[in-house]
Each structure stands twice: as structure tokens, then as C-alpha cells.
Amino acid sequence: NKSRCTICSKLAEIRHEVSVNNVTHKLCSNHCFNKYRLAN
């Protein structure tokens, strides 16, 4: 079950899903999750 990561755009296994204003951001790693948190 692979999806495209919101941060790095890599097609990968999604580890984190963050839902903001009915938009789901898919994040493939802790690294991308941290980058997402810093950016938002």
C-alpha cells in the first residue's frame, strides 16, 4: 500500500498521515514528518 509522500514526493510506504482542513498529508518517514511540522 504505497502512496506519494507530501514532502519528498517519493512513492513509498506511508508512516504518518496528518489531516488538516480535510486535506490528508501523507508522510513516508519521521524525517519528512519533522520537515512537515517545521514548515507548518
Rank of each mutant, 00 (worst) to 15 (best):
F33C: 04
E13L: 05
C28Q: 01
C5G: 00
Y36W: 15
H31S: 11
I14Q: 04
N1E: 11
N1V: 10
I7G: 11
S9A: 12
S29I: 01
N21T: 09
L38E: 15
L38M: 06
N40T: 06
E13C: 05
S19A: 11
C32K: 01
V18P: 03
Y36H: 01
C32Q: 01
V23R: 11
R37E: 15
T6S: 13
E17A: 07
C8N: 01
I14L: 05
K26F: 11
K26H: 15
N1G: 13
C5E: 00
H16G: 02
E17Y: 03
T24S: 09
E13K: 05
C32D: 15
H16N: 14
K35G: 06
Y36S: 13
N22F: 01
A12R: 10
R37Q: 15
K2I: 10
K35M: 08
C32H: 01
S9G: 13
H31L: 12
Y36M: 14
K35E: 15
N34A: 15
H16S: 04
S3A: 13
T6K: 03
Y36L: 14
V20E: 12
K2D: 04
C5M: 00
K10P: 01
V23K: 15
N34V: 11
K10I: 04
E13S: 04
L11Q: 11
V18Q: 05
V18D: 06
F33H: 07
F33D: 05
R37F: 04
L27Q: 02
K2Q: 05
S29E: 04
S19R: 12
K35Q: 14
K10Y: 02
S19M: 10
N22P: 02
C32A: 02
V20M: 11
A39M: 13
V18R: 05
C5T: 00
A12F: 03
T24D: 07
V23I: 06
R15G: 07
L11N: 10
A39T: 12
I14R: 03
A39W: 07
S9H: 10
A12H: 04
I7S: 07
L38P: 06
N1R: 07
Y36D: 04
K26A: 14
E17M: 07
C28F: 00
H31A: 14
K2P: 02
L11I: 07
L11A: 07
R15D: 05
H16C: 03
K26E: 09
E17Q: 08
H25E: 12
L38A: 15
A12L: 05
C5A: 00
H25S: 12
Y36Q: 07
T6M: 09
C5Y: 07
N1W: 03
V23Q: 14
K2W: 07
N40A: 13
E13P: 07
S3Q: 11
N22A: 09
H16P: 02
E17G: 03
C32V: 01
E13D: 11
K10E: 09
N40S: 12
S19Q: 12
N34G: 11
H31C: 07
S3R: 05
L11E: 13
K2S: 03
E13M: 06
